[in-house]
Design a protein around this nucleic acid. Structure first.
Lengths: 201, 201
DNA sequence: TTGCGATGTATCGAGCCGATACATCGGAGC
DNA sequence: GCTCCGATGTATCGGCTCGATACATCGCAA
């Protein structure tokens, strides 16, 4: 999961760890709170070992020489490699059932601009099915539940059910838009979104 | 987190692992999908080692004798101990900042029937503050975002922002109800909820 | 000049998940 | 009567992730 997100972000420009965390928090703010360094740095090393990313020598804007003064070992900037781009494309194409849980779906959705339309549709429909199942199971619990569940638990179920119904409606809109070939929501995207074009260079 | 949920469920009646998982799925269906056995069984052993739960000898409804035939080693029923009840009460009382993330809040809320009113209010307000912060940060991203974020990411943010606003409103209602001493939502709870009375025996 | 908050990299223990294995039981279908 | 299958049930393993923690630098305000 994190692997996918990192590759997706580095796809746009090279970054160091701290920056990745911030960008991730902004882009996925609606999904997960903020990625932990305890997962970020090990994942970066794993990706580098696999050859998907590599260190990009920090190109200092001014003075390119005089390197070893004060032995500053500061930020490590990573960039994605050709293998990394391939890997990212594979991860998109494989989009399996694990892509439909809350976190997995959110992360994939966040990179829809780099996903081809057929896959977008497949993911949206898979997610919809999953949320619908969840919704049905909650309806069951609610309908035959007065017996065993206290008022607070019931209220929690109601709120959850409401969220499910709302998400299904949201997904439905997105699917309709997707099928008609338009970008999300019909709010004019021609000027707000700069890189909807590249499906995969 | 799982520890809290298990103690809360065993508080109501003895159960074995499989049953715990199902009850948990029903009670927390709106929060987390379903607890994994890979966490459940280790946690049960941990709790037993700590003395919070103990095995309850499976009281077979019919034939109480003839035990060793076929060496059946079937279900292991656990029940909560006195120390376990104390532990559960402590966990409720300690309700700290980690109680306000999605999973933590949901689980605590699910056991509000066993939580005193002051703590309920504290948790609801803590959660509200947290969701409000999340909401503000997402509003920031959305307002100064047309530059960097593509249409899909924006749509994700909008949906997330909507969910946040909705949850804040929900929490607000609950807080008002809580302050006025009523049970959730005003839907008559006198007959639907059987055990709102015991704050802690 | 002292201190503090933001930036930045890094590790450790512990919790949790998904996959997997294995065993029993009741009933559906033949 | 037999066989197969899905539900019930316990259990482990590797790997990802989190939260806490440590440490170092930089710019700026008091």
């Amino acid at each position: 999961m994190l692997e996918f997100a990192i590759l997706g972000l580095l796809h746009e420009s090279p970054m160091h760890g701290y920056e990745l965390r911030k960008e991730l928090a902004a882009k996925l703010g609606s999904i997960r709170a903020a990625i932990s360094y305890g997962s970020l740095y090990p994942t970066l090393r794993r990706l580098q070992a696999a050859g998907y990313i590599s260190e990009a020598g920090e190109t200092p804007p001014t003075k390119p020489e005089v390197p070893a003064l004060t032995s500053k070992r500061g930020r490590v900037v990573y960039k994605i490699t050709a293998e990394g781009k391939e890997r990212f494309a594979d991860l998109i194409a494989q989009a399996g059932p694990e892509t439909y849980d809350d976190a997995g779906f959110g992360i994939h959705f966040a990179f829809f601009a780099r996903t081809d339309q057929a896959t977008r549709l497949r993911i949206l429909e898979g997610r919809r099915r999953k949320v619908e199942e969840r919704r049905e199971s909650m309806r069951d619990v609610l309908s035959r539940a007065g017996e065993r569940l206290d008022a607070y638990t019931l209220e929690l179920q109601r709120h959850g059910l409401d969220a499910c119904e709302r998400e299904v409606r949201w997904l439905e809109e997105l699917i309709v838009n997707e099928r008609s070939g338009r970008a999300p929501e019909g709010r004019d995207t021609t000027e707000t979104s700069p890189h909807v074009q590249d499906e995969r260079p």
